[in-house]
């Protein structure tokens, strides 16, 4: 960072000013002129927080996708179906047993097992044939989508969060100042969303630690760089592939429970989240966890801000970001150059 500041003093100044302006927008009470021009601060903050939590959800889905792609070069377009399947199973488990938390291990095991079957019996037989793997995953997504439509029908489901996580919490961010009493009003936000954000950060950090601080992570990183060499040096790469695929699938399934809790589950959601993870991964860079995190936040915030301030063009903003990244940095913001 110091080196960057030394080499690009002007850019550092611009970035520092932007960060300062952003922090001011978030924490300071807005003057009336600004509220008149842009709208209430509460709306802005809600869009921002909504975008960040949506980004957290996107990160959970996209990190498995990017990990699988980075290691195996498999573009698993059935990833969205795993998400939706996890959501449905989570809904069933949570309503049958009455325990929201129990749904997570169950879904991780069930969806992870499906991922194991997919990798072991289908994808591993066509290693290196990337296009064929992608086509197979498209076929799987069609079949899975129709099977899910068969079992769960077209209506939408919402998983109820446990009582502990329901209700709003007050954040230490000023929403507005009461004009008569001069008392600051703080923003209130659903606590379940805060917990989702915390969970995503914890999972992201855990993944980062495993990838960068353990021998398993070392093997996976080596596999991302050069899997032939890794296989030649005696690592049982098939097992590593299987483990990563199962983990990525299970993570997508667990993200499905979270998606079903804070939004809802219906037949179109699988493509929606598949596309979201595609865009996140294209923007952030293939095979990079940190890239997925940055991409997810960018796309989530853009989507929510777009929905609030320019509803007609919200999709176009997301797309423009993707196009801009592709035009200037085709490998993604944090992707390794190839």
């Amino acid at each position: 960072m110091e080196k960057f500041a030394k080499n690009h003093p002007l850019w550092t100044l611009v970035i520092a000013l932007l960060v300062a302006g952003f922090l001011w927008l978030v924490f300071a009470p807005w003057p009336p002129e600004l509220e008149a021009a842009v709208g209430r601060k509460r709306i802005f903050l809600n869009a921002l927080l909504g975008g960040i939590t949506l980004g957290a959800l996107y990160f959970l889905v996209a990190s498995g996708f990017t990990l699988i792609f980075g290691l195996m070069r498999t573009v698993n377009l059935a990833h969205g179906s795993l998400f939706l399947l996890g959501g449905y199973i989570g809904y069933e488990v949570a309503t049958q047993s009455g325990s929201w938390l129990l749904a997570f291990p169950v879904v991780f095991v069930v969806v992870g097992f499906l991922g194991l079957v997919m990798q072991r019996f289908i994808f591993s037989h066509m290693e290196g044939e990337e296009l064929r793997q992608t086509l197979v995953s498209i076929g799987l997504s069609i079949v899975l989508a129709d099977l899910m439509l068969w079992f769960w029908g077209g209506q939408s489901y919402t998983t109820l969060a446990p009582a502990l996580l329901r209700g709003p919490v007050e954040l230490p961010i000023i929403s507005s100042i009461n004009p008569t009493s001069g008392e600051a009003i703080y923003i209130r936000y659903p606590s379940v969303r805060i917990w989702i954000l915390v969970a995503a950060i914890v999972i992201g950090l855990a993944m980062w630690l495993v990838l960068n601080r353990t021998s398993l992570g070392m093997v996976i990183r080596a596999g991302v760089d050069d899997r032939e060499m890794l296989a030649a040096s005696g690592v049982r790469i098939k097992l590593v592939f299987l483990a990563v695929f199962v983990f990525g699938a299970g993570l997508a399934g667990m993200a499905g429970i979270i998606g079903g809790t804070f939004q809802s589950l219906s037949p179109g959601e699988d493509t929606r989240f598949l596309l979201a993870s595609l865009v996140v991964v294209i923007v952030g860079g293939m095979g990079s966890i940190a890239g997925a995190a940055i991409g997810a936040i960018i796309i989530g915030v853009t989507e929510q801000m777009g929905l609030v301030y320019a509803p007609t063009y919200s999709v176009v903003f997301t797309f423009l970001i993707m196009a801009a990244v592709l035009a200037f940095r085709p490998q993604g913001l944090l992707g390794a150059g190839r």
């Binding site: 992608t134 596309l275 595609l278 991964v281 294209i282 293939m286 007609t312 063009y313 999709v315 993707m322």
Partner: peptide, 26 residues
């Protein structure tokens, strides 16, 4: 700008953006 497998993903994303745009634009 990208090759092989990326083309599918990018064109899928553009197609989806166009679909949502036509649905939202009156």
């Amino acid at each position: 700008r990208t090759e092989g497998i990326y083309t599918i993903m990018i064109t899928l994303a553009i197609a989806a953006a166009f679909f949502y745009f036509t649905r939202q634009n009156y």
